[in-house]
Amino acid sequence: MSTPTVEKEPASKIDLAESGDGAGAVQQFDITLKVRRYDPERTEDAWWDEWNLTMFGTDRVLDALHKVKWDVDGTLTFRRSCAHGICGSDAMRINGRNRLACKTLLKDLDTSKPIIVEAIKGLPVEKDLIVDMEPFFQSYREIMPFMINSSPTPTAERVQSPEERQRFDDTTKCILCAACTSSCPVFWTDGQYFGPAAIVNAHRFIFDSRDDAGDMRLEILNDREGVWRCRTTFNCTEACPRGIEVTKAIQEVKTAILTRSL
């Protein structure tokens, strides 16, 4: 993790092989986008809408949604912000799998069939692809997602070895998009389970050598609705757009609770 920067000067000029121009070959193709709509101001029941669109090689599902919203039907409603997978706004169910619309390239999906887009499951749908995120953030807040260190504040930084830092690196990547929690069949059942995202964020502090409140978080997650409801279905790990090994993190928390009790 430290800095062995390469000191060797690279060549002033190299022969560029006829490299594959990833961005170059932009081909057009047609898709059918099928979106589950819901708007209680219009009608009580959800319905499906379908659009045929012509898209390009590097377009993502988000581009297709934008194309509909901007050119065809302005009432189509979804959250989005950064559009490159780091803000976590546009988690949705695409062809039955939770993903970020901005990280899912159309060309990677089967475009011969309609691309089916729905809101993430398990949270109340507010309108089209927008769900109520409050229950999700409530669980996050409950695990005390902040560093607690009771020792006197040093003047400089708190020392932490690269190995100690590496220990919780994976779980610092979470962007709170809810793709994991809303892919969990246990969470779907009653919404009471803390859910993978909350546990991941607890993990990030439990295994941070600078934090003192690991015990309290373990106690919280030892709850009836805590880690023991995890059934290791790995849906969360598969859904995570950041590639966090979510199930592994949950398992490590389980082990920590066990070891602490023994």
């Binding site: 290791t232 790995f234 790990t237 090994e245 199930t247 592994k248 398992q251 389980k254």
Partner: peptide, 16 residues
């Protein structure tokens, strides 16, 4: 398999 996933360190990586 579940027990291995739970107690073997590499379990989560090789669950598939």
């Amino acid at each position: 398999r579940i027990i291995l996933v739970d107690f073997w360190k590499q379990g989560t990586r090789y669950h598939r």
